[in-house]
């Protein structure tokens, strides 16, 4: 019998689920190797109770209902994989986690906004609530990272995901450095790779979507930005877009 897996989305854009469905060349191999029994984004008939070998969860946890759903997924799964930067770090929804929700509503809608807040708290990563066996960052998670994770996990191995910065992959493709050569605000030196330096390949400065590398030298890169007459806090804002809770935790 093939191992059963489930694919879930909490608060997020469902980009990871789309990217899983985008694994067109591998989909037949995937369904040949696993039984996808619970995947609301891909099927209207789902088994929401049976035991799972692996649960892939995208999105962040924004309220008690999602926390409960996550607990339920965790309880029925041998392995739980956080997919994408929302699940890994809190993501875009956690960008302003420190600002109160009524204040945010006011900022967005002005004084004529909805009178009462929705049932949405600050967005948090999955690891705040449950044990996460593997975290695959990215906005969205790369399709090939998903395939690699499935392949390794089915063999009982932890997949080796990049821990090095985007610069490695950028240099491997011999792109002219956007930060050094063109003075563009590239977050590549402090951002985890895995994207194959996709944005720099299109002459777009890295926005930091895979989250910061371990021991990111923020002090140094802020100075570099300043010296290139880029807004000094731009690098921080870029990384905060995807991984604000990580940066806040490091500051503590």
């Amino acid at each position: 019998m093939k191992p059963k897996i489930g694919i879930y989305g909490l608060s997020g854009c469902w980009g990871e689920q789309i990217n899983i469905l985008n694994c067109e060349d591998e989909l037949l191999d995937i369904v040949g190797a696993v039984d996808i029994v619970d995947f609301l984004g891909g099927s209207s008939v789902n088994d929401t109770e049976s035991r799972l070998a692996i649960a892939f969860v995208e999105g962040s946890v924004a309220n008690a209902r999602e926390e409960k759903e996550l607990q339920h997924i965790r309880n029925r799964s041998d392995l739980l994989v956080a997919c994408g930067s929302c699940a890994c770090f809190g993501g875009v929804g956690a960008m302003d986690a420190q600002v109160s929700r009524p204040e945010l509503i006011k900022q967005v809608y002005g004084n004529n906004g909805p009178a009462k807040s929705w049932d949405i708290g600050p967005h948090k990563p999955l690891s705040e609530f449950v044990k996460v066996d593997l975290a695959i960052p990215g906005c969205p998670m790369e399709s090939k990272a998903f395939v690699k994770a499935v392949s390794s996990l089915l063999n009982g191995d932890v997949p080796l995901l990049p821990t090095y910065p985007v610069c490695l992959e950028c240099k491997m493709k011999e792109y002219d450095c956007l930060l050094v050569s063109r003075g563009l605000p590239c977050a590549g030196p402090v951002t985890v790779a895995g994207c194959g330096a996709r944005c720099p390949g299109y002459n777009v400065a890295c926005i930091g979507c895979h989250g910061p590398v371990d021991e990111a030298n923020m002090g140094s890169i802020e100075k570099i930005f300043e010296q290139k007459e880029l807004p000094m806090d731009q690098i921080k804002l870029k990384l905060r877009t995807f991984a604000a809770p990580v940066l806040d935790k490091e500051r503590e």
């Binding site: 090095y164 910065p165 610069c167 490695l168 240099k171 491997m172 450095c177 590549g188 030196p189 402090v190 590398v213 021991e215 030298n217 002090g219 140094s220 890169i221 100075k223």
Partner: peptide, 13 residues
Amino acid sequence: GNRCLSCGSCSMA
């Protein structure tokens, strides 16, 4: 070390 970003660009190049 305080200035180095550990980006590895020098090694690649």
